[in-house]
Design a protein around this nucleic acid. Structure first.
Length: 638
RNA sequence: GCCGAUGUAGCUCAGCCGGUAGAGCAACUGAUUCGUAAUCAGUAGGUCACCAGUUCAAAUCUGGUCAUCGGCUCCA
C-alpha cells in the first residue's frame, strides 16, 4: 500500500478527525471494503477538513486503475448523461443512475421512446459538457430542504427516494455540475473535463425499483474508462464475445437449432451437438457412480394429485404444463424429485441404508416466460444432472461438503471459475421456522468447513428450503447459475418418509436436491462460449480430419481413417477434390483439433502429419503414436 | 409477462415516396489433381415469418399472431 500516492494538491497526507490518515482510507478502499462505507468516510472527511479530499482520492484511484476509482468515474458520467438528456429533451424525469460492473446506466421516465438518433444527440451534448469542464460541487442539506428542492423541479422520483430514506437520515448530499443538480451520496470526480472516454451502448426497459408492478422506465446503458485505449479494448472484447456467442457457433459448428416451427425454447440437437452432449453425460454417469450415487429414472408425467401433495401445485403451478390421461389430470414434471421420493418409499429403510443418493439425468419442462428464452441458456425443456440425497441429520454436513467438492472437481475439469452464494428463506415458502434455521445453518456450516468464500442472498431460496448456488461466468461475463445444493426438510414430511434408527424408532430423513452442471443445455451453451467452439480434444465431436492432397492419396487416407475409427478416435475423412488449403480452412473453421495431411510423403513413409488448429505442426509421426496422443488427452480431460 | 427493436435465399444483408425481389458467401454441376485458412466457370435457390385489412396493386401502409434480439422481472 505504501506506493499509493494521494492526490492532495499540496502532496501532504491529510488526517481525519478520528485519527485515521488519508493513506489509511485509500488503503482500506483498496482492500475491497464496501465502497459506500469508504465513500461515506471520505465525505465525512470533507466535512471535517474542508479538503476536497474525496475528489482527489477518487481521481487518484482512477489514475491507478482501481475498480472503485472506475466506479466513481462512471457514476460521474451517468450524472453528465442525465444532464445531457434533460438539456436535450423536455418532460424527462430522472430516477437513479449508478455505476455497474461494466459501465453505468440511468433510468428515465419519458413519454416518448429514445431512438438511436436521440442517443447520438445525447452523446453529442455530453461531449459538450465534458469540454466545458464543469466542476462537481458537493452540498449538504437537510432532507426537508432536499425534498423542497426536487419537488420544485418536479422530480417526483427523487422526492420518493428522499421520503423512503431511513428515519435517522437527517442530512443528504447533492452534487451539481454545470447547473445540473442531482441527489447523490457521491463521491465524484473533480470535474467533467476528466472524462476522457465514454460511450452510450443501448436503451432498454426497466421497472422502477426493479418491481414488475411498477412503471416501466427507459434505461440508457453506457460505459466509460480512464483512457480511450481502455474503452477501445472493451469494445473489442464485446465484438470478440459476439463471435463466440453460442447461438452463432451452434449454427456454424452444426451443433443444434432452436426452431421457430418446433416452438420457442425447444432445442433440437444435431449429430455433433448430440455427440458433445453424450460425452458430457457419459462423464456424469461415471463420476456419479464413482461417488456412490445410484442411477434411477422416473416418468415425464405424474398425476396432478402427487404435485398437490408435494406442494408444487400450490407454489409452482404457473411454471408447469398439464395434460390429461383417461380423464385424469397429470402434471408434466418441472422437477425430478417426486419419482425419487416414491423410490425411497418403496421399502422400509434402515439408518444403515443411508445416505441414499438417487441420480437422474432428468428431463424437465418449465413454462418460462417468453421474454427470457435465450439460445441454450434459458429453454423450456432441459435436462438436469439431478440427484436427491436422503440422509440422517448427522450425515448432512458430510454430504453437503462432498457435493461442494464434486462441484469444485467438475469446474476444474471443464476449466471454469465460479462464485458461491447462500440463499435464505423467501416470502412464499413452506415449512417451520425451526426447520429453515436448521437447514440454513447446515449449508452455511458445510461451506465454512470447506473453507469456501460465499455471499449471502437473503430471501432467494427455493420455496421448500435454503440453497447454495454456484455461479460460473461466460465469455460475456454473465454469471450463470449451474450447480446448486438445496436443503429440504419439507418434502420428506409431506411424503412421510422414514427410516428406522439405531434405537428401533422411526425417524425423518433429511433431503438434499442438487445439480452439478445444472442443466446440460445451459452448460453446453456456457461451454461453447468458454472455448469459443474450440473444445478440448476429449470433448471435440470430431477430433481429427484426414485431408488428402490429391485423389491418389485417398487409399492410404482411408486406411488411416479405418485405423483411427477402430481405435475409437472420432475421425472424419475429407477426400473431396479440393485444394489442400481449402480443406484446411474448412477444418480450421470447424475448430477440429487435428488435421492429418496425407500426401506423397505420408504415403511413402506410412505416417501422418498432424496439423494443430493453433497452426502448429507435429511433424511426421506414426498412426499408432497419433492414436496414443488422442487417448492420453482424453484420459487427462485435455 | 413488461419496455423497445427486428423478421427478405442456408448465412450476412440491399431493396427510396406501394407497381409485384437482388448481391456476396454457402449449395449443386462441370473443368482442375493441386502440400497447410478460400482454383475457375456455370446452375439452381425466396408464399419477402404468419393471418387479416386498406388499395386497381402490399416485401413496402394498418391491425393481430408467432418468433428472434437488447434489457427488466424470473431462473437450471
Amino acid at each position: 500500500m505504501s506506493d499509493i500516492k494521494i492526490g492532495l494538491p499540496d502532496g501532504s497526507t491529510g488526517t481525519f478527525s478520528d485519527g485515521t490518515t488519508v493513506r489509511d482510507v485509500v488503503a482500506s478502499w483498496k482492500q475491497d471494503l464496501l465502497a459506500s462505507t469508504v465513500a461515506a468516510k471520505v465525505d465525512q472527511a470533507l466535512v471535517d477538513t474542508s479538503f476536497k479530499l474525496h475528489r482527489d482520492a477518487a481521481l487518484t484511484l482512477v489514475d491507478i486503475g482501481s475498480k472503485e476509482g472506475l466506479g466513481i468515474l462512471r457514476h460521474s458520467i451517468s450524472h453528465v448523461m442525465a444532464q445531457a438528456v434533460q438539456d436535450t429533451f423536455k418532460n424527462v424525469l430522472v430516477t437513479i443512475g449508478p455505476s455497474i460492473e461494466e459501465g453505468f446506466y440511468y433510468d428515465f421516465e419519458y413519454a416518448e421512446t429514445f431512438t438511436p438518433e436521440d442517443i447520438e444527440k445525447i452523446e453529442k451534448r455530453m461531449a459538450e459538457l465534458v469540454a466545458a469542464n464543469y466542476s462537481f460541487e458537493r452540498r449538504e442539506m437537510s432532507r426537508e430542504e432536499a425534498v423542497e428542492l426536487f419537488r420544485g423541479k418536479g422530480e417526483s422520483y427523487k422526492v420518493e427516494l428522499l421520503n423512503d430514506l431511513p428515519a435517522d437520515v437527517k442530512t443528504v448530499s447533492i452534487y451539481t455540475q454545470g447547473g445540473y443538480t442531482d441527489l447523490c451520496r457521491g463521491p465524484h470526480i473533480p470535474s467533467t473535463g476528466m472524462i476522457k472516454a465514454f460511450k452510450l451502448l443501448n436503451v432498454a426497459g426497466a421497472y422502477w425499483r426493479g418491481d414488475e408492478k411498477n412503471k416501466m422506465l427507459q434505461r440508457i446503458y453506457g460505459t466509460g474508462f480512464a483512457t480511450k485505449e481502455a474503452l477501445a479494448d472493451y469494445l473489442r472484447v464485446i465484438e470478440e464475445a459476439k463471435k463466440r456467442d453460442h447461438r452463432r457457433l451452434g449454427r456454424e459448428l452444426d451443433l443444434f437449432q432452436v426452431n421457430e416451427e418446433a416452438g420457442a425454447g425447444l432445442v433440437i440437437f444435431h449429430p455433433k451437438g448430440m455427440l458433445l452432449r453424450y460425452l458430457i453425460e457419459e462423464w456424469e454417469r461415471k463420476e456419479h457412480l464413482k461417488r456412490g450415487y445410484d442411477m434411477v429414472m422416473g416418468p415425464q408425467i405424474l398425476k396432478a394429485d402427487l404435485w398437490k401433495k408435494s406442494g408444487h401445485f400450490d407454489h409452482y403451478r404457473e411454471n408447469m404444463y398439464f395434460t390429461e390421461v383417461d380423464n385424469q389430470p397429470y402434471g408434466i414434471k418441472p422437477m425430478n424429485c417426486l419419482s425419487h421420493m416414491l423410490i425411497y418409499k418403496s421399502k422400509i429403510r434402515s439408518y444403515r441404508d443411508l445416505p441414499l443418493r438417487y441420480f437422474e439425468l432428468g428431463t424437465v419442462h418449465r413454462h418460462e416466460k417468453g421474454g427470457v428464452l435465450h439460445g441454450l441458456m434459458r429453454v423450456r425443456q432441459f435436462t438436469q444432472d439431478d440427484a436427491h440425497i436422503l440422509c440422517t441429520p448427522e450425515q448432512l454436513n458430510a454430504e453437503i461438503r462432498a457435493i461442494a467438492d464434486f462441484v469444485g472437481y467438475a469446474m476444474g475439469i471443464f476449466g471454469f471459475e465460479y462464485e458461491v452464494e447462500l440463499s435464505t428463506r423467501p416470502k412464499d415458502s413452506i415449512g417451520s421456522d425451526q426447520d429453515w434455521e436448521m437447514a440454513t445453518n447446515a449449508l452455511e456450516q458445510a461451506l465454512k468447513d470447506n473453507h469456501m468464500s460465499y455471499d449471502v442472498n437473503p430471501g432467494d431460496g427455493a420455496f421448500y428450503g435454503p440453497k447454495i448456488d454456484f455461479k460460473l461466468k461466460d465469455a460475456l461475463k454473465r454469471k450463470w447459475q449451474c450447480a446448486t445444493i438445496q436443503c429440504d426438510f419439507t418434502l420428506p414430511d409431506r411424503f412421510d418418509l422414514t427410516y428406522i434408527g439405531e434405537d428401533g424408532e422411526r425417524h425423518r430423513p433429511v433431503m438434499l436436491h442438487r445439480v452439478i452442471l445444472g442443466a446440460i443445455e445451459r452448460f453446453m451453451g456456457v461451454l461453447i462460449e468458454h472455448y469459443a467452439g474450440a473444445f478440448p480434444v476429449w470433448l471435440s465431436p470430431v477430433q481429427a480430419v484426414i485431408v488428402t492432397v490429391t485423389d491418389k492419396h485417398i487409399p492410404y487416407g482411408q486406411e488411416v481413417y479405418r485405423q483411427l475409427v477402430d481405435a475409437g478416435v472420432r475421425a472424419e475423412g475429407d477426400f473431396r477434390n479440393e485444394k489442400l488449403g481449402y480443406k484446411i480452412r474448412e477444418a480450421q473453421l470447424q475448430k477440429v483439433p487435428y488435421m492429418l495431411v496425407i500426401g506423397d510423403r505420408e504415403v511413402e513413409s506410412r505416417c501422418v502429419s498432424p496439423r494443430q488448429r493453433d497452426g502448429g505442426n507435429l511433424g511426421a509421426i506414426g498412426v499408432d503414436e497419433f492414436i496414443k496422443l488422442i487417448k492420453d488427452k482424453c484420459s487427462a480431460y485435455k
